[in-house]
């Protein structure tokens, strides 16, 4: 059964059509990669799926675990198990990372009818997750993303994902800006979650991430449509030949 079913999805930003009919089915437990040239609509797809204001759906439907995803508020989507690792994580001045994360975790738990986590147990879990991601405890005390290096911001996204344990993670270029070691750690973070309760859409430009997170399928997005889908070998082929041929094919 598919966890995520996107059918004929069209969306516009500021009156400009960006997504022009996307069809994609993500079965439970699978990881799919989304590739495609700059400006093809990858981040737009991620935002539309997570419910960002200003990204107007003009057609099509999205079902997530049997629910009408597009009818839900962003926080309801999070509670339902959707997580977006931002391409450009946002800074929250004065808001401590630990505070932010525990607030988020408890909001999600409440919405799911689960018990809230207390400060002590939260810190235990958070520290354990940080260790797995080779990140310093000090991360918890800092303000959310404020003064973080590019790589630290990306790792902070993966840290949040590790704690929130989503059923579907959308990773928007989480690999860009990471050094080789960090890339491996992030990939391990994702692989650790892989299993029948976890699916992911991994947006990336680079094969090197897919060497570590081997996808079940690869889709190529171009000008707001999926123009090609295939197995992991498709990404390797693209690495060698680029998108030029595909764009022409789609046109």
């Amino acid at each position: 059964m598919a966890l995520l079913e996107i059918e004929g999805l069209c969306a516009e930003v500021e009156g400009k059509p960006i997504l022009r009919g996307i069809d994609l089915a993500l079965p439970i437990g699978e990881v799919h990669a989304i590739m495609g040239p700059n400006g093809s609509g990858k981040s737009t797809l991620a935002y539309v799926l997570s419910g960002r204001e200003g990204y107007t759906v003009t057609g099509g439907s999205v079902r997530f675990a049997g629910q009408d995803l597009l009818a839900m508020e962003p926080e309801e989507r999070a509670a339902a198990g959707l997580f977006l690792a931002f391409q450009y994580p946002v800074e929250l001045p004065g808001v401590g990372n630990a505070n932010f994360l525990r607030t988020a975790l408890n909001a999600v738990r409440r919405a799911r009818g689960e018990k809230e986590i207390d400060a002590i147990n939260f810190l235990k879990e958070a520290r354990a997750a940080l260790r797995r991601l080779s990140m310093a405890d000090e991360m918890l005390k800092r303000n959310v993303n404020v003064g973080f290096s590019g790589g630290e911001k990306k790792r902070n996204e993966v840290f949040q994902m590790a704690l929130l344990k989503p059923r579907l993670a959308i990773l928007d270029e989480t690999d860009s800006g990471l050094d080789i070691d960090a890339l491996k750690i992030v990939a391990e973070g994702v692989n650790a979650l892989r299993g029948k309760d976890f699916s992911a859409l991994v947006i990336t430009h680079y094969q090197r991430l897919l060497d570590h997170i081997v996808p079940d399928r690869v889709h190529v997005l171009s000008a707001g449509r999926i123009v090609r889908s295939g197995g992991p070998e498709l990404a390797k082929a693209l690495e060698a030949s680029g998108y030029a041929g595909l764009a022409a094919e789609a046109a």
Binding site: S50, G51, R52, E53, G54, E73, P74, E75, R77, A78, A79, F83, L84, F86, P89, V90, E91, L92, P93, G94, V95, N99, F100, T103, A104, L105, A107, V108, A111, N143, Q160, L164
Partner: peptide, 29 residues
């Protein structure tokens, strides 16, 4: 900022809780 609100909401916070969190951060000093 819209992006701050969306970031918080995408993590599961209601709009009101998101505003409170951001405002509290603003007042931290």
């Amino acid at each position: 900022a819209e992006d701050q609100l969306f970031y918080c909401r995408s993590r599961g916070l209601s709009e009101e809780d998101s505003v409170n969190l951001i405002v509290n951060g603003f007042c931290r000093e």
